[in-house]
């Protein structure tokens, strides 16, 4: 499989606080990579480096390189808006806009200047089908997105990301606010989406990491301790720290 992302010697500081320490990680195309580790270990900080979300935080300094499809996303002059279209993000809490279901999904296209009505309609439908939401909402596209259930809202947010044709999806604890049935639907969705997209997911749920990911990376106090195939990490990790964490002995 081709490399989608190549992170080399990545360091990130919030002021004096060294949040990510010399991270090196390759992410393969059309795979799911789970980032695990105790709270404050740098997982979310790392995932936000992949679409430069940390640029929005004060006093952040970053060095090292992050190559997305061979392109350094931290080089001067890069179009950050375009980067964030290419690398979509789904957050812990579903965050639909206070608009209709249709307009939520169409939002990115409209902001991007797309005016072709039938193109937008097709994209909205396609995105809702991909997120297995179409059958549930096709007759209520004008309904407010806020009225959807939590699980449906999260799938809507994923559909919103897909509508602008990203190449990669970042998911920061996408199911932590959802019930088991909605969680299962999102996990099924991740399984389907990886046929087309590269996915990086932050999760505190070990079973979820084991179920959905191909590769797991364990972070601890800003360091990437170990990365390997998920089956290897959950059966025979090389590092004692990883074993202690996944077996619940610390963290």
């Amino acid at each position: 499989m081709a490399k989608k992302v190549e992170v080399s010697n990545l360091n990130l500081r919030y002021g004096d606080f060294h949040a990510l320490k010399n991270i090196n990680l390759s992410i393969e195309e059309r795979s799911v990579t789970a980032l695990i580790g105790p709270s404050g270990c740098g997982k979310s900080t790392f995932i936000r480096c992949l679409n430069r979300m940390n640029d929005l935080v004060d006093h952040v300094t970053i060095d090292g390189s992050v190559l997305l499809e061979g392109e350094d996303i931290y080089r001067k002059g890069i179009d950050i808006d375009n980067l964030r279209y290419r690398v979509g993000m789904v957050f812990q809490k579903p965050n639909p806009f206070p608009k209709s279901i249709f307009e939520n999904v169409a939002y990115g296209l409209r902001v991007n200047g797309v005016k072709d009505k039938s193109f937008i309609e097709n994209k909205v439908r396609e995105s809702l089908v991909k997120t297995a939401l179409w059958d549930e909402v096709k007759d209520d596209l004008k309904k407010s997105a806020i009225d959807l259930s939590g699980g449906q809202q999260q799938r809507l947010c994923i559909a919103r990301s897909l509508a602008v044709e990203p190449t990669m999806l970042l998911m920061d604890e996408p199911t932590s606010a959802l019930d088991p049935i909605s969680t299962a639907k999102i996990e099924d969705l991740i399984f389907e989406l990886k046929k087309q997209y590269t996915i990086v997911i932050v999760t505190h749920n070990m079973q979820q990491a084991a179920r959905v990911s191909d590769v797991t990376a364990f972070f601890y106090i800003g360091e990437l301790i170990e990365t390997d195939t998920t089956s290897k990490i959950f059966t025979n990790p090389k590092q004692e720290k990883t074993q202690n964490y996944i077996t619940g002995r610390f963290g």
């Binding site: 070990m206 084991a210 959950f234 059966t235 025979n236 074993q243 996944i246 077996t247």
Partner: peptide
């Protein structure tokens, strides 16, 4: 407990 690694073994 859904054990993993050494606990599963």
């Amino acid at each position: 407990f859904s054990p993993v690694a050494i606990d599963l073994r």
